[in-house]
Design a protein around this nucleic acid. Structure first.
Lengths: 231, 231
DNA sequence: CGAGCGGTTGAGGCCCATCAACAAGGGTGG
DNA sequence: CCACCCTTGTTGATGGGCCTCAACCGCTCG
């Protein structure tokens, strides 16, 4: 059992410094362990902010995290949602180029960046792990670019299927995030997200039992919409 | 001097196998050298194709390369343009998820993937190099996602400035690629690209001396358009 | 000279953003 | 427990930006 650490009221990463629980060895991804502590975050609580020194690397233990960039006009581009076992906070630079917030109540494994970097310098397996993680992130981001050229309903169908495969069952999925989050992730407005969900319901592809719970009624329709028309 | 190899008429990577010139040690990026051969490509010639086994890694010696994915409806999403010293063909999987073609007459340094992978397994510096290259690619791709939310003229202004910083002078830039390429890169149509170039000319931000040569007349206007309104 | 390609420009329509109003929860304090 | 408020989500009306279709221009090449 890991020692949890929940210092309420201290912002951002300073909270982690204030946490005196004993680190335990944890896997970042495949092989090899690095000391880590567990931190708890409330919904909408900040994990780190754009421009801050990048001192830690995170792995989701439970809950959901969003990483995003704030644009000059105040708009927000959500880069990714991170679900259990996902690693985030890995970047090339010494400062964060993204911000991260908990979407819902979340527990994170927190690794010292310096320890990970040092491990990667002496241990090729760790370096390969980092490369693999970054490569996977790159793949997802490329998929985002391709998706961003498609229509609103197609983007939404794709999003629901992906979400379902991560945190849903065969027949349904709970949306951990708000319409606002979905809109900022897909590059749409909340109104369009809402309209397209209604449209998906109208064509009997899904049923919205509540605003946050979606039942897949016709996966084929979703898949047809989601897939680049041929491949 | 490197031995150049130009076997005309043999498609894709088979050409490289047919090349019997002696490999020479070349830098992939920072430190460390790996044997490589030089290959020449004519404009629009294929370098590798989506789905093919990923046997080589490439570095641009001269010219320009585009990497892209073909969508099911026949549309083409250009992922990136690669200029001299850029490395491409590095991916996570064993098969290419992208295709690559020369935009203009191009010379490439070709590295055996197996040699690079082996080097990364035994030499952490090489693994770090790959990580660094992938990280940089990720940054660029993220910038693409953010850009894709902005207006046509803003995307184009951004594109011209970036291109200018890569292959242009203080005051002008030659476009190595067609309107079609630009459109597929920015997620626009060729008509919109053309209209926005005309618009940039109308507001005296640029001058099109020929269809492929652009003079920067007012860099500030371009920068204002290019930048996310605040930061 | 005609054909074909790349590029520009115009007219019209569609998709989604915007603005606006309203409904549905979800806390809070009396 | 309920009235209230504030947030979140839905739906409608309108407009604008970009795509689509189409015509035209200039250049290159046969």
């Amino acid at each position: 059992m890991l020692t949890a650490c929940s210092t309420i009221g201290v912002a951002h990463e300073e909270r982690i410094d204030a946490c005196h629980s004993a680190p335990r060895s944890e896997q970042l991804s495949g092989t090899g362990t690095v000391p880590a502590v567990v931190m708890s975050y409330a919904a909408d609580e900040r994990v780190f902010g754009q421009g801050m020194p990048r001192r830690f690397v995170y792995k989701v233990k439970s809950g959901v995290v969003r990483t995003f960039t704030l644009l000059g006009d105040g708009r927000r581009q959500i880069d990714a949602f991170h679900f259990p076992d996902d690693v985030f906070g890995l970047e090339l630079n010494d400062d964060h180029s993204l911000s991260a917030e908990a979407v819902a109540a979340t527990q994170l494994l927190v690794f010292q960046r310096s320890l990970i970097d040092r491990a990667a310098e002496n241990n090729c397996a760790m370096a390969q792990e980092l490369l693999s993680l970054t490569g996977r992130t790159l793949e997802r981001t490329r998929a985002q670019v391709v998706l961003s050229r498609r229509s609103a309903i197609e983007r939404l169908a794709n999003f629901l299927l992906n979400l379902g495969s991560r945190v849903g069952t065969e027949t349904s999925v709970d949306l951990p995030m708000s319409r606002y989050d979905i809109a900022d992730y897909l590059g749409l407005t909340i109104e369009t997200v809402s309209r397209m969900l209604s449209e998906l319901e109208r064509i009997d592809a899904i049923v919205l039992t509540t605003t946050r719970h979606i039942v897949f009624r016709d996966r084929v329709k979703l898949t047809v919409l989601s897939n680049p028309p041929m491949g």
